[in-house]
Design a protein around this nucleic acid. Structure first.
Lengths: 206, 206
DNA sequence: TCGTAATGTAGACAACGTCTACTTCATTTA
DNA sequence: TAAATGAAGTAGACGTTGTCTACATTACGA
């Protein structure tokens, strides 16, 4: 084949590029604008090509979401470590802030993680990644309970409550309309996160 | 016209029936299964008929969501009144429980209220209804703050936090997959709601 | 080197939202 | 009362999408 201009029949690593381009589209225009044919067009490939790599659109979405949840887990874990503390409350507090920070810095992607079209046909791989993350949170919550945080509340309920705050707050803030209803705009993002998380996971009085 | 079998050319009140049927579909199969053509079919009407009553699909969705938010507001207001108390914390606690109860008893509809396709093209009417509800919550939260609940936290942030819990918890519980990750199934719904809400809006020690 | 499987192409199909031109009917008004 | 006006429903078309199938091209292992 000619070296420079001629496009090779086989793409090379189309699968990875599809995922990458799809994430780009989601990031810039939201999941609603994501189209298999559009991605194929952008990559200069025929409209049927993506089907060779993903059984259907949901499979692609599941893969992206799985990557997203993995990143989320990594971000929270990183935050817990960076807190440099052994106190479960300090660690969980840091995790919550890491979670919200990631969400607010990756808004379209974060919304994708909770998008009905993604959840409805979640791959078993995606389910497993989510389960993994849920486990790590549950564990961290349990540790705070041992340290005296709401000792009388059943663990699953305390976990639900603990999850609700960063998740709910992030979802409310990530949507342009809902964000407008919450009059929390004037505040700088990091202080907002800090104050909200401090309400769910108060730091121990030092 | 013949009285029994003949279908009149004009439907009578197609607009209302479209909304009703759309809500039915959402309630039973979710918003993803909602199709203008499908609704038209179900009502025995041509596929273009709905366009005479709604400029586009988003307009229909906006109208349904507006109805939903109105119901939500009614439900929370009703709960506050039924609490039979003047204490702002008791009232807000009741509102939170009423909100979650409505959400869990109208799952597909509740999900619709937060569906991206609904929010992205929200009618000004829908925005106004949502704003209305947000105001009433903000007000109730402010009252609890006067009564000594987290007096040092800026009101918008306290509102965000307060909103996050029932909203986040409901959204987590309403999704089949996420609900599975939260291991809060064994519990009876009403006690679950009560315990979660008590964590955000603790009842005054009597 | 040759055959087989993986990968990409091209065309088709049904379903959808929406537009337009046309039909039917209800209501108002002359 | 009769005609006209416009609201409401129909039928067909268009472009877009996801997905299927038959086919072409290429990489790679036996």
């Amino acid at each position: 084949m000619s070296s420079t201009t001629a496009k090779p029949y086989h793409h090379g690593n189309l699968r990875a590029e599809i995922v990458q381009r799809a994430v780009e589209v989601i990031d810039s225009e939201g999941i609603e604008a994501l189209t298999l044919r559009g991605v194929a067009r952008d990559l200069g490939v025929s409209h049927g090509a993506p089907n060779r790599h993903f059984r259907n659109k949901q499979a692609l979405l599941s893969e992206i979401a799985a990557e997203g949840w993995t990143e989320v887990k990594r971000a929270t874990l990183h935050a817990a470590i960076e807190s440099g503390s052994d106190d479960p409350r300090i660690r969980l507090n840091a995790m919550g802030r890491g979670y919200m920070r990631w969400a607010l810095n990756h808004r379209p992607l974060f919304r994708t993680l909770f998008h009905p079209d993604v959840m409805r046909f979640a791959t078993s791989e995606l389910r497993s990644v989510m389960s993994d993350f849920a486990d790590s949170v549950q564990e961290a919550v349990a540790a705070t309970q041992v340290a005296g945080r709401h000792p009388d509340v059943p663990l699953p309920l305390l976990t639900l409550y603990t999850n609700s705050v960063p998740t709910g707050a992030a979802l409310l803030l990530v949507d342009p309309i809902l964000e407008g209803e919450m009059r929390a705009d004037g505040v700088d993002q990091e202080t907002l996160i800090e104050q909200v998380i401090n309400l769910v996971v108060p730091l121990p009085a030092s």
